[in-house]
Write a protein that binds this DNA or RNA. Structure first.
Length: 286
DNA sequence: AGTATCCTGGAA
DNA sequence: TTCCAGGATACT
């Protein structure tokens, strides 16, 4: 799943439901996904939940952590007395555990399910001192602080302006590069470039100072919209309680091939850039 | 910079 | 039946 707004929303939900809870047991159904020794987890209490880029860190009170990445179709869904009566999206597989449930955390009167249709995601058990030596976290670039609750490095305009001016990469590929900027994925990259009226194919170094500022502001604006709607549940993403987000109904241009552009009468075009579906308005975005 | 790759389901 | 999918990495 997803991108900064989705993971941030999930982080808040997990804090609500599993903070202070004890890991009574862990059932691993797909060993590839759960990497590490579950004995380092069992008996420990959940101390805190953090997000770095699109990654989640569940901190335990025994100095171990669970580092989690949901990739495209992962879910972390809590089912317990706190969530009884809440609707759970069919995207979870209906009832839990489902055929897509690969790891189950028994949290004493409640269960946290890791579901993942495509099985690309991972959960790594590691000592907290080793977390930042994991390349995924170590190499994560600074991220837009749209929440005031940031664990990683914070993106500044000076830094953003510098990396844009120094790169010949297509601007869309650059802003999705997690080593340069953390948290932006395909949906919000497309929408931010549309909001800034910049052609996603443009070489980064050709952007004017004014365009760089516009793009910087647009990135913050679309991520905030994403948060406001609880993320996008276009595919498999759901919140910690199994409910869906709604940003998929509010995208500016993502997924709108052939539909009229929101600001002119032109039609939205789809191309591939770096192997990823890329949506833009050839008339508006220059 | 582009492509294959880990997987499976759903849409065309 | 073929193509596509909110990601990240390891190739050519």
């Amino acid at each position: 799943m997803p991108e900064l707004p989705e993971i941030e929303t999930l982080k808040k939900g997990l804090r609500k439901y599993i903070l202070g809870r004890t890991m009574e047991d862990v059932e691993v159904r797909v060993p590839k996904i759960f990497q590490g020794d579950k004995r380092d987890v069992i008996g420990a209490k959940v101390d805190n939940i953090k997000r770095i880029g699109k990654g989640i860190i569940i901190e335990l009170d025994n100095d171990f952590v669970l580092a989690v990445h949901l990739k495209l179709t992962g879910q972390l869904v809590y089912v317990g007395k706190e969530t009884q009566g809440k609707k759970i999206s069919p995207k979870t597989g209906g009832s839990l555990p489902s055929k897509f449930t690969h790891v189950i955390f028994n949290l004493n009167k409640g269960y946290l399910y890791y579901n993942d249709v495509r099985r690309f995601g991972w959960i790594k058990v590691m000592h907290k001192d080793d977390t930042m030596s994991l390349p995924f976290f170590k190499e994560m670039g600074p991220e837009p602080d749209v929440t005031g609750d940031i664990t990683g490095k914070v993106l500044t305009f000076d830094y953003f302006s510098n990396i844009v001016k120094r790169s010949k990469m297509a601007i869309k590929i650059l802003i999705m590069d997690q080593k340069r900027i953390g948290g932006i994925g395909n949906i919000y990259a497309n929408d931010a470039l549309f909001m800034a009226r910049i052609d996603p194919r443009r070489a980064a170094e050709t952007l004017t100072q004014e365009e760089i500022k516009k793009l910087y502001d647009s990135i913050f604006a679309v991520l905030k919209e994403g948060l406001k709607y609880g993320g996008s549940s276009d595919v498999n993403y759901v919140h910690a309680d199994g409910e869906e987000g709604n940003y998929q109904f509010h995208t500016l241009i993502y997924g709108k091939t052939g539909e009229p552009c929101l600001s002119c009468s032109g039609l939205v075009k789809k191309i591939f850039l770096g192997g990823r579906g890329t949506y833009f308005c050839p008339a508006c975005q220059r």
